[in-house]
Design a protein around this nucleic acid. Structure first.
Length: 470
DNA sequence: TTTTGAGTTGTTCGA
DNA sequence: GTCGAACAACTCAAA
């Protein structure tokens, strides 16, 4: 590379904590000597909860180490902090990956205005998605509300090839008055065990998934006891790896498997996993085009629905004491790992919405507080899907039965035994219904807080009333 | 322009 | 035990 440019640029990282395949960093490096900045913003830290914050801090420490200690961390409101720093180092431009969430896009507009008042530019290059949220439109110009047509258009649209790795020598040291602040110590995690953080860990996870788990993904992805899902969600959340990089590696892995024994299931698995990445992009698109859907019902169909305020049974759900083994296993996994298997997330959401008749926002908020991968678009639209208020007009009669879901996807009870030690000694035929034992559930395990069959009928009644009322 | 068929993830009931 | 029907209403794309 030629001699470093003499102008100064700020690379402001938010949820793109990596050096590889980072177009905003490459753009910053092309326009000047780069100062890497992360702003600890209270507006984002408050709803995150200690688990996701700790993971963020660890990612920042990893990145700082890769930058040779050159990551500048500051605390405050970005609308103040970013322009002040740009002025301090006389930067012409601040480079970011665009944010399409309701808070992030508003924040970026404020920063852009403050910078412009000072004669500086905010430059958006790329986004945390393979296809820019809001880019895909139906022929009539409106955005998609059903996944399958979106998925077709998304694949048709395609995405750019991954950009190469960045050269850390572009980065200037944080030789500023006052410099940066230390990355905060981890908050108390209350015993939650987190996956390894950072860019290298993300690539390790991706490689392990592709070589060890992808072949069985299509067949076993719904079994929570089988460790075949990618577990990439925390890394995608913070941009330790870009989905474009994942899609590229997935295509390479699928091509390598073609023609080999088991090529057909491998191809089916690759397609299935690609569609899961597309769900993440679909929900980001919905959020970008309908920002209110993060907090309120996306569709008006259930506006007249009668809900219960969260009470004792909701509290029992939060701490894994509902008396339904698959539900409690999932909630205890959430508390222990900050992560829950996708199939179990649906069972949990159905229990809150259909068995407890509690509005999805309460469950979604608890999930966002506890999840290491907590993402506003994916989490809240996933909850809306189950509640029947979201995309795809989920049939009102789709009510998950926690016993039959357990029998179907955890037939020998391995997942339940792993997370609910009270039930470890039970044989498979009763582990999903411990209340049927003559002596009742063992080891102090609770009896069901609600009767599922009765609450299912109640949920259907409430839906019918809401529909006829509307 | 209008019509038609399909749409991630389910459960129960009765033949 | 297995299997198909029923459980609404709306979005989207193709015919």
């Amino acid at each position: 590379m030629s001699s470093p440019p003499s102008t100064q640029a700020v690379w402001w990282l938010r949820r793109d904590l990596r050096l590889d395949d980072n177009p905003a960093l490459l753009a910053a490096a092309g326009s000047g000597r780069v100062l890497a900045l992360f702003v600890l913003d209270d507006a984002l830290r408050r709803p995150a909860g200690p688990v996701r914050l700790a993971f963020l801090h660890r990612c920042l420490r990893d990145l700082d180490a890769r930058l040779g200690g050159r990551l500048c961390v500051r605390t405050g409101n970005p609308a103040d902090v970013v322009p002040a720093l740009a002025r301090e180092i006389a930067a012409d431009a601040v480079h970011i990956a665009a944010d399409y969430g309701p808070y992030g896009s508003h924040r970026d507009n404020l920063v852009e205005r403050a910078l412009a008042a000072d004669g500086r530019r905010l430059v958006r290059t790329g986004s945390p998605y393979a296809v820019t949220p809001g880019r895909l439109r139906k022929p009539d110009g409106t955005s998609y509300r059903v996944f399958t047509p979106f998925y077709r258009a998304w694949k048709e649209h395609g995405w750019r090839a991954p950009a190469g790795p960045a050269d850390p020598t572009w980065l200037r040291p944080t030789d500023l008055d006052g410099g940066g602040e230390p990355i905060p110590a981890d908050p108390d995690l209350g015993g939650t065990e987190l996956p390894p953080a950072g860019e290298h860990a993300a690539h390790e996870r991706l490689g392990a998934f592709l070589t060890e788990s992808l072949a069985g993904y299509a067949a076993h992805r719904d079994e929570p006891a089988a460790a075949v899902t990618s577990r990439l969600s925390p890394y995608l959340k913070w941009g330790c790896v870009h989905p474009r990089t994942v899609l590229d590696a997935l295509r390479t892995a699928a091509a390598a498997g073609a023609g080999a024994a088991g090529a057909e299931p491998a191809a089916a698995s690759a397609e299935k996993f690609r569609s899961e990445l597309a769900w993440r992009e679909f929900y980001a698109d919905v959020l970008a085009t309908t920002p209110s859907s993060a907090r309120t019902d996306l569709t008006e169909t259930l506006a007249a629905m009668d809900y219960e305020p969260p009470g004792d049974s909701f509290e029992a759900w939060k701490w894994g004491r509902t008396g339904y083994p698959i539900v409690d296993a999932g909630m205890r996994q959430l508390l222990a790992e900050g992560w829950v298997h996708n199939r179990v997330r649906m069972i949990e959401a159905s229990f809150v919405c259909k068995d407890l008749h509690v509005h999805w926002t309460h469950g979604a908020r608890w999930y966002l507080e506890r999840l290491v991968d907590g993402d506003l678009a994916s989490n809240n639209h996933g909850w809306q899907w189950t509640a029947g208020t979201g995309t795809d007009a989920a049939p009102y009669f789709r009510v998950f039965n926690p016993v039959s879901q357990g029998r179907r996807f955890d037939p020998d009870g391995a997942y339940i035994r792993r997370w609910v030690p009270e039930l470890r000694g039970l044989p498979s035929d009763v582990v999903h219904e411990p209340w049927k034992l003559p002596a009742g559930p063992p080891n102090g395990y609770p009896r069901p807080v609600v009767d599922h069959a009765a609450e299912r009928r109640e949920a259907l009644d409430r839906h019918a009333r809401a529909r006829h009322h509307a």
